[in-house]
Amino acid sequence: MSLDKATVAKIAHLARIKVPDSDLEQLAGELNTIMHWVEMLGEVDTQNVEPMTSVVAANLRRRPDAVTDGGYPEKVVANATDATENFFSVPKVVE
């Protein structure tokens, strides 16, 4: 299947990237080239194959449920464009 302009606009929206309408056509072309190329995976027999979720066979470790870090809010917000009283600030979302 091919991605049309409307689908590309929807993906851009999901990805929270503003794409001007004038760029949609070219972007659709580029994405289609890549998506058509990966179609070749359809040739591989993957019946009864478990999807790989981890490259090394390892169980996640457990540790005591204790606070081991933190206590420096000023460091956490140090890189924010807009931080007030150790909070991240964003444009108003509630009317």
């Binding site: 991605l3 990966v38 995976l41 359809g42 999807p51």
Partner: peptide, 24 residues
């Protein structure tokens, strides 16, 4: 955008899950 597409509802199995199986 490719990543967003292959993880989006309706395409996850066809692309991402398939690729993880090929990876296996």
């Amino acid at each position: 955008m490719i990543g967003t597409y292959v993880l989006s509802a309706g395409y996850y199995d066809a692309y991402y899950l398939k690729a993880q199986k090929v990876r296996a």
